[in-house]
Structures are given as C-alpha cells and as structure tokens.
Amino acid sequence: MTITITPSARERMHHFLAHTPNAAGVRFGVKRTGCSGFAYVVDLASDLAEGDQSLDVDGVRLIVDAKSLPLVDGTVIDFQRQGLNAAFVFHNPNATGECGCGESFTVG
C-alpha cells in the first residue's frame, strides 16, 4: 500500500490536526457518488473502525478503510490554491476516467 502526500498537502493536514488534537488521524478513502462512480473523502478521523488500515505518511497518520484500499493505492495527494479556491487534488493511477467537473472518477 503506497500513498504519497506532497509538502503542501502535508502542511494542510498538519494544520487541521493541530486544531483537533484528539483526532486519530486523517481519513482518506472513496465513496460511491457523482456521475462517474466514486468521489474522494478526506476528513478528520475520530477513531479507527474495524478493517481500517493506519499508515504513517511523512508524519501524517492516514486512515484508509478496507473497501477504499485497492482504489487509492498509489495515489498522490496534493493541495493546491488557485485564486480564491483551495482544494486537495488527487493523482490516482487506478482512475480510468473522471467526470467533467473533476469531482468523481471511475476505475477499470
């Protein structure tokens, strides 16, 4: 299992974790939604659930649920600012397509 976090994404995650010291880590995964099938989920995790995988990625504890593991393996998580917008951006080698708005993706 490999997930990479860019320095800007790591800084943003550390910012959120510093303001929520009781968080178990950052939950990263996918949920079924959107016009292409899956959307990414990045949120603070309050605890570990059964089947969760905990990964230390450059000093950030990432928590990934078992169903998301094969869909996010190899993903690079970035954080980008463009004008007034700021968001996490995902480069996922498992994605075979994305919807036009970039909010959801498909896998082969």
Score class of each variant (00 low, 15 high):
Val42Ala: 03
Asn92Pro: 04
Asp56Pro: 02
Asp78Cys: 03
Pro93Glu: 06
Val60Thr: 02
His15Ile: 09
Thr6Trp: 07
Ser46Pro: 09
Ala45Glu: 06
Phe79Asn: 10
Gly37His: 02
Phe38Tyr: 15
Val72His: 07
Val30Glu: 00
Ser46Met: 11
Thr96Lys: 08
Val57Gly: 02
Asp43His: 11
Asn22Ser: 15
Met13Ala: 04
Asp43Cys: 15
Lys67Trp: 12
Leu84Met: 14
Gly108Cys: 07
Gly37Asp: 01
Asn22Leu: 12
Thr4Tyr: 13
Thr106Gly: 13
Val42Ile: 14
Gly37Met: 09
Ala24His: 10
Leu48Pro: 00
Asn92Asp: 04
Asp78Ser: 11
Arg10His: 07
Arg12Pro: 02
Asp52Leu: 09
Thr96Arg: 13
Pro7Thr: 05
Asp65Ile: 04
Ala95Leu: 06
Thr106Ser: 15
Arg10Phe: 04
Val107Pro: 06
Asn94Lys: 15
Lys31Cys: 03
Thr96Gln: 02
Lys67Ile: 00
Ile3Ala: 03
Arg27Leu: 06
Leu17Trp: 04
Ala39His: 05
Gly59Lys: 12
Asp73Met: 08
Leu48Asn: 10
Gly108Gln: 10
Val72Lys: 07
Ala49Asp: 13
Gln80Phe: 00
Asp58Lys: 03
Phe90Leu: 07
Pro93Ile: 02
Ala23Trp: 08
Leu71Thr: 02
Ser8Pro: 01
Phe79His: 14
Phe88Tyr: 15
Leu84Arg: 14
